[in-house]
């Protein structure tokens, strides 16, 4: 079905909300081990596309193939169990649980047949991996935004995904936090997890992505390595507004 190295393939994806077509006939492929950036102006349909992949919404047309398996009709929990993790644009943590509990829930439910002891081990390992150890005792709503987003990433990582989809992980962060987040994304990729990320922070997207795809009004208008995208006249026109 799909070629060996394409872990996730979207083929002719269309999603309509009433009369509005949010995503229109979009096809893309995600290659194993890469960081693929998904960019586009506000309202371009990026998050809708994410939601369709993760099963949160069902695409009206087209198919998603994950490791050779068509996953269109699956619910998010099943898609998570297959190995596709995601975060949300506005962090959706469990507010009354401690940071550690937040991550532990991901470890406990993310894979079938997970034992409590194994989940505990995985939790500690994941927290150390994303560097949240010192926040163990802090109530989640009191943590800085960057750390709240990091909990989301940690919870998704604790489900042991093969692909992680990050929805605007760097929005609202200060420059120091952005560069930490970039390091984390690279670290995730180096650990063998393929990354698909929506991002508006250009500096980040241009320096860490292997390839970029661009959406505009729900349509895929460009695809290629960062340098090519940055110099693509069409992209500059619709997305960067011709200022660069």
């Amino acid at each position: 079905m799909s070629s060996f190295e394409n872990i996730l393939v979207g083929n002719g994806i269309t999603k309509r909300f009433g009369g509005m077509t949010a995503v229109s006939n979009v096809s893309f492929d995600l290659r194993k081990g890469e960081i693929l950036g998904l960019i586009g102006p506000n309202g371009a349909g990026k998050t809708t596309l994410f939601n369709c992949v993760s099963g949160f919404l069902k695409a009206d047309e087209g198919t998603f193939t994950f490791e050779g398996k068509v996953i269109n009709r699956f619910n998010p929990d099943k898609i998570c169990h297959l190995g596709l993790g995601r975060t949300f644009q506005a962090a959706k943590n469990f507010p009354d649980m401690s940071m550690r509990e937040n991550v532990r829930m991901g470890a406990l439910f993310g894979q079938r047949d997970m034992t409590y002891a194994e989940a505990e081990r995985l939790t500690d390992e994941t927290i150390a991996f994303v560097g949240l150890e010192k926040y163990a005792g802090v109530a989640v709503p009191d943590m800085p935004l960057a750390m709240q987003k990091r909990i989301e990433v940690a919870r998704a990582l604790a489900t042991k995904p093969k692909v992680i989809m990050l929805d605007e992980m760097m929005a609202g962060l200060n420059p120091a936090e952005v560069s930490e987040a970039m390091d984390l994304v690279r670290k995730v990729r180096d650990s063998g997890i393929t990354v698909l990320m929506i991002e508006h922070v250009m500096k980040a997207i241009m320096s860490i992505c292997d390839r970029i795809i661009v959406l505009h009004h729900g349509e895929l208008i460009a695809e290629g390595p960062p340098q090519e995208i940055a110099n693509n006249p069409h992209v500059i026109e619709v997305y960067l507004g011709g200022e660069v």
């Binding site: 949160f56 619910n75 998010p76 649980m97 829930m105």
Partner: peptide, 25 residues
């Protein structure tokens, strides 16, 4: 139990619960 914890997750944030593998329905 796992069951009770998954209910708590649903109450805390149903979308998140679903995306970490809880069969919410």
């Amino acid at each position: 139990s796992r069951f009770g914890l998954s209910l708590t997750c649903i109450g805390q944030n149903e979308d998140s619960a679903q995306h970490i593998g809880v069969n919410t329905t």
